Amino acid sequence: MDNLVPMNMLNFAPTGFIFDLNGTMINDMEYHTRAWHAIINVDLNKELSYEAVKQEMYGKNQEVLERVFGKERFTRAEMDDLSLDKEKRYQEAYRPELALIAGLDKFLAQAKQKEIGMAIGSAAINFNIDFVLDGLHIRHYFNAIVSADDVVASKPDPETFLKCAEKLGLSPSACIVFEDAPKGVESALNAGMKCIVLTTTHDVHEFSAYPNILGFIKDYNDPILKELF
């Protein structure tokens, strides 16, 4: 585990795990970036580099479009259509590769056995969350789901994770968040939650501003995770 904060800083026994979805449970962010890059550049003629597109990919799909094109460019109906088109392209490309990040299947089973409440807190729409949960047959592990459709304010606002804790019937401080993006870690910080970061999407140095990180893992086989139980 790279750049691990000593786990003895974890001075409580967590009773809730909250997972971001894309890049955290499945390693699919490249496919999202490709889909957005094609829509932004080929369909909408914006001429934005792949790296520039990647930096804009946080929050709701409509927010991505507004950041890139401005708030007056599209109607809500047009943004909804573009959002669904983007997700269909993503799913078509990623479906043959759909898989949990290594070790997550065993980690979820162990957490369930230990009666730890689990939730998904994602900026994805339900169309994508269903694609993953039902495609991988893991819906039964989760006691709560909070999607883009369930919140007013996107990450880094804490609403997503606070709603997860509320649905689990837990205090925010009893929960640990699993994330892959700086904005998600900031959301957890704003919610008063500790965080473990998956290094699937961003480099470790991009998280230097966040004091709530317990450690960085490349997958769920990392032995340090045993200390969470």
Rank of each mutant, 00 (worst) to 15 (best):
M57D: 03
R34Q: 14
Q62P: 08
I40K: 03
I39A: 00
N41E: 05
Y50M: 07
S49M: 02
V42A: 10
W36R: 03
A52S: 12
Y58L: 04
L65G: 00
E66C: 11
E51Q: 15
L44R: 07
N41I: 06
E66P: 02
D43G: 06
L44D: 05
K54H: 14
H37P: 05
L48E: 09
I40P: 03
Q55C: 14
Q55R: 15
A52N: 12
K60V: 04
L65Q: 06
N61Q: 01
Y50R: 08
E47A: 15
Q62I: 13
K60T: 09
E56R: 03
I40D: 00
E56I: 01
D43S: 10
E63D: 03
W36E: 04
V42Q: 11
A52W: 11
E56D: 04
N41Y: 09
L48Y: 11
V42G: 03
Y58P: 10
L44E: 04
S49F: 11
N41F: 07
E51K: 15
Q55P: 13
K54P: 01
K60A: 12
R34T: 10
R34H: 06
R34D: 00
K54G: 07
Y58I: 12
E66Q: 11
E51Y: 08
I39Q: 00
A38M: 08
E56H: 09
I39E: 00
L44W: 03
S49W: 05
H37T: 04
L65F: 14
V53R: 06
E66Y: 09
E56S: 09
V53M: 10
Q62C: 06
E63N: 09
I40H: 01
N45V: 08
E56C: 07
M57L: 15
N45H: 14
L48M: 11
M57Q: 14
A35Q: 04
L65N: 00
K54A: 10
A35K: 03
E51A: 15
Y58M: 13
L65E: 07
K46D: 00
S49R: 07
Q55Y: 12
G59S: 10
A35E: 07
I39P: 01
Y58N: 09
Q62N: 11
L44P: 00
A38R: 11
V42I: 07
L65W: 12
E56T: 04
E47K: 15
N41W: 13
I40Y: 07
K60Q: 13
I40M: 00
L48A: 10
S49H: 11
A52R: 12
W36F: 11
K46C: 06
I39W: 00
A35G: 08
G59I: 08
M57S: 05
A38T: 10
V64H: 00
L48S: 08
K46A: 00
D43P: 05
V53D: 04
K60L: 05
L48F: 10
E51D: 10
S49E: 03
Q62L: 12
N61H: 01
A38F: 13
H37Y: 05
E63T: 02
H37D: 02
I40C: 02
L65I: 05
A52P: 13
W36D: 06
W36C: 06
E56N: 07
M57P: 08
N61I: 08
R34L: 10
I39T: 02
M57H: 13
N61P: 08
V53S: 04
A38Y: 13
G59D: 10
I40V: 12
N61Y: 06
I39V: 11
V42C: 08
G59W: 04
A52T: 14
